[in-house]
Every structure is written in structure tokens, then in C-alpha cells.
């Protein structure tokens, strides 16, 4: 396979942009935030991040989803962690998110608006809670 040039990349982007506009849904902003601190990286957050990107793209919702990386969210004991903020759903932090759970978060939480059970966490580790 030959190296892709930046011009080829721009052309691909333009082709895909037209496709994405046609598939646009609701237009509301959905944020998926992946914890990419030391704890997240050690636990496999990059795999979760890749699975989220792929599943968002496959489900045709890229135009309404912002995917961000952040540092440690304070849930080091259940990394990798992923926070989802979207209209119509409570802001939710998921823990122990491997690639399969990451795919479920996109399909069930973001697309179907149902929570993904057994992975919901709402408090950071006790050593960083402010008194």
C-alpha cells in the first residue's frame, strides 16, 4: 500500500463530508469523553477510544457526536472510563470500558437512549473527593 498524501486525504474528506451531511441526525451535540490519563492508558483506553470512533462512524452519527480525550477523571479503580453527555439522557460515567463495552455505549446509550448496565459509576476515588 502506498503512503497517502495530504492532498489525497483532503479529497477523501470532501467525499465523506457529503455523505455525512446526507446522514445527519437531529443536529444535537452529543459528547463522548474518554479518560486518557496514566490510569486510562494502562487499562486500555486507546482500544476503547478506537472502538468508539469506529462504532460512531459505522452508525452514521458522526455529524452529531463530539469525541474527546481527557486526563484522569478520578475513577482509576475502574478504568478505562468514558463519560457520555447528551440531550435526553443523564450525564453518565461508565467504567471498565473495554472495546465491546465501548461499542455497547455507542449503540445502546447514544443511539437507543438506554443505559448500559453494570458499568455505571458516579463518584471519583475517595482520595480525590473534596471535603
Amino acid at each position: 500500500m502506498a503512503k497517502m498524501t495530504l492532498d489525497q486525504l483532503r479529497k477523501l474528506r470532501e467525499e465523506k463530508k457529503g455523505d455525512m451531511v446526507r446522514r445527519e441526525v437531529e443536529g444535537k451535540e452529543i459528547q463522548i469523553i474518554v479518560g486518557m490519563g496514566t490510569c486510562g492508558i494502562a487499562a486500555g483506553a486507546k482500544e476503547a477510544f478506537d472502538a468508539i470512533v469506529q462504532t460512531v462512524d459505522e452508525n452514521g452519527i458522526a455529524s452529531s457526536v463530539v469525541i474527546r480525550q481527557t486526563g484522569c477523571m478520578g475513577l482509576c479503580h475502574v478504568e478505562p472510563t468514558v463519560e457520555v453527555v447528551m440531550p435526553g439522557m443523564p450525564a453518565t460515567i461508565y467504567g471498565r470500558v473495554d472495546a465491546e463495552v465501548a461499542r455497547q455505549i455507542v449503540r445502546r446509550h447514544v443511539v437507543e437512549k438506554n443505559l448500559v448496565e453494570n458499568h455505571i459509576y458516579d463518584r471519583p476515588a475517595v482520595d480525590i473527593v473534596k471535603k
Binding site: D57, A62, V65
Partner: peptide, 17 residues
């Protein structure tokens, strides 16, 4: 070339590149 790296479409293209 691909826009903000917070968009799944942009991230997918950037990764392929």
C-alpha cells in the same frame, strides 16, 4: 486536511492516513 479531531469521520480518515 480532515477538520477537528473530535469527529469520528475525521478521526477515521486521520487514522487511515
Amino acid at each position: 486536511a480532515v477538520g477537528e479531531l473530535t469527529d469520528a469521520g475525521s478521526l477515521t480518515l486521520a487514522r487511515a492516513f
